[in-house]
Simulated scan of single mutants.
Amino acid sequence: MDIITLEHVTKSFNGQEILRDFSLSVKEGEFLTVIGRSGCGKTTMLKLMNGLLMPDEGAVCVEGKNIAETDIISLRRRIGYVIQNRGLFPHMTVEKNITYVPVISGKKDKKENRELALRLLKLVGLEEEKLEKYPAELSGGQQQRVGIARALAADPKILLMDEPFGALDEITRQTMQDEILKLQKSLKLTVVFITHDIREAMKLGDRVMVMEDGRVVQLDTPENICRVPADSFVADLIKSVLNRS
């Protein structure tokens, strides 16, 4: 079953077309990784899925509903969104950061919210003592874990991730890759994950989508992309993996 679809979507900014006649179907429960050069439309695509942007033409549907006909605030609260700089509120403790969405959605019971924050903190591999810390008191990897915990606080079926591990060192990055794969499988999440790293895309994705100039160049399993790259751009990406392996 498709949980997200983009049908012949076009999106422009200041007269420049970012996505053109763009179509995509994301299956429920799959881990889709997206790779492409800066400016190719990856983040625009993700923001369309979350209702942060609306298409100029075409339709975006989430869970079978056109987002143009949906309560956007409710939609965003049902979709986890994780970005590279984590987007944490610096003046809030870890506990308040994690429970922010439930609280603004009307869940005011402090005991229940603390239990939720603690459960999610443990789920992403952090200790209870971190609940009272502020983001500046955490390492980059710990902040990223809190960002993921916050995205999971509304119990979403969909997790959108925009280069979430790009600023982390290599060892922490590999650890976080393993953690997000475990979470995706245990929680049966649908994940759309943008990256600049082809090795990361191939490791994480059930399918990998390569984008260029606002279009899909190739969308297939990592194995098929390695075996039969669609064009020279994809072939060069694959060569970079082989050269570093």
Rank of each mutant, 00 (worst) to 15 (best):
R150L: 04
Y134F: 15
G15C: 08
C226G: 10
L52M: 15
T172W: 11
V234P: 07
N243A: 13
L181A: 15
K11I: 00
P222T: 03
N224F: 04
E30D: 14
G51L: 08
F165H: 09
D155R: 14
S74F: 09
V34P: 06
L160G: 10
D21E: 15
A149I: 08
L168D: 06
L48T: 08
L131A: 01
G80S: 03
P229W: 08
E63G: 10
L126K: 01
N85K: 10
L123A: 09
K185N: 13
I148A: 07
R76H: 08
L121C: 11
Y81C: 01
A149H: 09
G36M: 07
E63F: 09
R215S: 13
R173Y: 10
P229C: 02
L19K: 08
T195Y: 02
A235W: 09
A230K: 12
P102A: 04
R76D: 08
V234D: 04
K133E: 09
T43F: 12
L131G: 00
R76V: 00
L181H: 11
M161Y: 12
T10Q: 05
F22S: 02
E129S: 14
R145T: 05
G58T: 08
G29V: 07
A201T: 03
V124K: 02
R244E: 15
I225H: 06
E69F: 07
G166W: 14
R114T: 12
V9I: 04
A136G: 11
E128I: 00
D236C: 00
V210W: 06
V34D: 12
L152T: 06
S240W: 13
V217M: 04
I98S: 02
Y134W: 02
L6T: 01
E179A: 04
L120H: 03
I194R: 00
T195H: 04
L121N: 04
S105K: 12
S240I: 06
P164C: 12
E30Y: 11
T172H: 10
V9E: 04
M54N: 15
R86T: 14
A201G: 03
M209G: 00
S245C: 05
Q144G: 02
T99P: 01
L120G: 01
A153G: 07
K96L: 05
R119P: 01
I171N: 14
